[in-house]
Nucleic acid binder design. Structure first.
Length: 478
RNA sequence: CGGGAUGUAGCGCAGUCUGGUUAGCGCACCUGCUUUGGGAGCAGGGGGUCGGAAGUUCGAAUCUUCUCGUCCCGACCA
């Protein structure tokens, strides 16, 4: 049992912070609301980045970089956008020792700057579509920060595309939602519900917002990624026009989509346990660690360590990366090292000691189940691959079972209220209400509509009683 | 931003009410010896000016005022 981690049953928030601290993922920065992402945490972000970036490239996108500072007047151009972001904008009012004529906002998102550039770049239908992504930091001043989940500055990617038709832009919006769903489910082992947001939860300035919604291990919901169909709202605000084949001037149709370091928070909260972090193998920067063990410190270092190193090299060659490390902390006793790797969430531990060498085996210990398996030396490489795959599948399955076990149906508003109040979790209910209804539901139950389930029949709305209700997930959310 | 709690060594805490020698303890850290397959033992050692500022006092970790951070609950918000 970990002695530096509060059990999640006792205090979930504290558990979350303890896991982050024990795994050395992040630390508080001197600036309120900001965090330092430590090397171990940053490696996870790099891992997520590389998976996403590969998919972006595969779907025809290119990377670029736009400025951090945004003229205040830009934000003002789209009415809903400014209303949505103004309260959380940090403004730069002075520079070069003087007060600026026009303050700059530190970007909370880049629709406006990028829109202004698209207006210059796009002339003809031949220029379309424009498919650009940027990896950057953004700032949204937060009153109640939580590491990874809600910090004033965070890292993300934001894709911004411009298209000739509504149809193409809608397709793009859904294509990227699907990219996100795939990465979350297949790489991060996070089961998500990819659906549409209700009107009250939409991105400021969007026509439609789609989300990947995940359930954390306290049954609360977390939005892990979003994709927005912006219609012609930003095109009109920034005058992004092109000449079509008939020589007519047309406004573009745009989209934007993003995933942030918040996804690391989801990763932590979905898989980890009371011993600390648990990482799915496909996203773990270190997938396995080999421990040379001996009663004799110098034998471990001089006799066993070279064997362990050789095994690591063979595994890395097979796995195609520097994914397997050898623990060379010879000054630590085995017990201490077990706990260290446990808390860092390394999916698989390989123990190589004198006993193993004598019997021609290696002991494998799974992080997800704690199961110990002795494997013949010649089978280690295929076994490690198999077990890593199995851990990946098991984590996904475990999370999905948990979500399903904590998902309920409500036939009426009273029932919704009762379930949220007594059990929590996700509640499915037909809904066709207004944003005002959403506010009322939040005030009365604490839950919000997280997303509309795709491909489902309509039913009787629990608020209006009309039969055009869409099947919607309600939950308390981060 | 409102309510509650809290801030003393890297971490966790005692001391504060009833001001008074060099501010303690556990873990961690350093050195040595013994240990080593699920968080070792003994011995020796280093590290803090008590979140910050101002004030009261002969004297402040301790009292007063202000301020900052953090945590929990809420409001607001992705």
């Amino acid at each position: 049992m970990a002695r530096n981690i509060t059990p999640k049953e006792e205090n979930y928030s504290q558990w979350y912070l303890d896991v982050i601290k024990a795994a050395e993922l992040a630390d508080y920065a001197p600036v309120r609301g900001c965090m330092v992402i430590r090397p171990t945490g940053y490696a996870i972000w790099e891992s997520i980045q590389s998976k996403l970036d590969f998919e972006f490239k595969k779907t025809g996108h290119v990377n670029a970089y736009f400025p951090l500072l945004i003229p205040n007047s830009f934000l003002q151009k789209e009415a809903e956008h400014v209303e949505g972001f103004a309260p959380e904008c940090a403004m730069v009012t002075h520079a070069g020792g003087e007060e600026l004529e026009e303050p700059f906002a530190v970007r909370p998102t880049s629709e406006t700057v990028i829109g202004s550039m698209y207006a210059k770049w796009i002339q003809s239908w031949r220029d379309l579509p424009v498919l650009i992504n940027q990896w950057c930091n953004v700032m949204r001043w937060e009153k109640r920060p939580r590491l990874f989940l809600r910090t004033s500055e965070f890292l993300w990617q934001e894709g911004h595309t411009a298209h000739a038709s509504s149809k193409e832009a809608r397709e793009e919006t859904l294509r990227m939602l699907e990219v996100y769903r795939k990465i979350f489910e297949e790489e991060l082992a996070l089961p998500v519900i990819a659906g549409e947001k209700t009107a009250g939860e939409r991105f400021p300035g969007a026509i439609d917002t789609y989300t990947c919604e995940a359930m954390m291990s306290d049954t609360k919901a977390l939005q892990a990624g979003t994709s927005h169909f912006l219609g012609q709202n930003f095109a009109k605000a920034f005058d992004i026009q092109y000449q079509d084949k008939d020589g007519e001037l047309q406004y573009c149709w745009t989209t934007s989509w993003g995933v942030s370091t918040r996804s690391i928070g989801a990763l932590i909260m979905v898989h980890s346990d009371n011993d600390g972090l648990v990482l799915p193998p496909r996203i773990a920067p270190v997938k396995a660690v080999i421990l040379p063990i001996s009663k004799d410190e110098s034998a471990a270092e001089h006799d066993i360590f070279p064997k362990a190193k050789e095994l690591a090299e063979n595994l890395n060659a097979e796995l195609g990366g520097m994914f397997v490390k050898v623990d060379d902390n010879f000054h630590m006793r085995p017990g201490d090292r077990f706990f260290m790797h446990l808390q860092k969430g390394i999916p698989l531990r390989l123990e190589l000691g004198e006993k193993d060498i004598a019997s021609g085996t290696v002991r494998l210990v799974r992080r997800d189940t704690g199961a110990k398996i002795d494997v013949k030396t010649e089978n280690v490489i295929p076994e490690v691959k198999n077990i890593l795959d199995d851990i990946q599948k098991n984590l996904y399955k475990r999370a999905k079972n948990f979500r399903e076990a904590n998902t309920y149906d409500a036939k009426s508003y009273d029932e919704l209220k009762e379930i949220i109040d007594s059990k929590g979790g996700f509640v499915r209910a037909y809904f066709a209400g207004t944003p005002e209804d959403e506010v009322r539901i939040r005030e009365e139950t604490g839950a919000t509509p997280r997303c509309i389930l795709p491909n489902t029949e309509t039913g009787t709305c629990i608020i209006t009683g009309k039969d055009n209700g869409r099947l919607t997930i309600f939950a308390k959310a981060y």
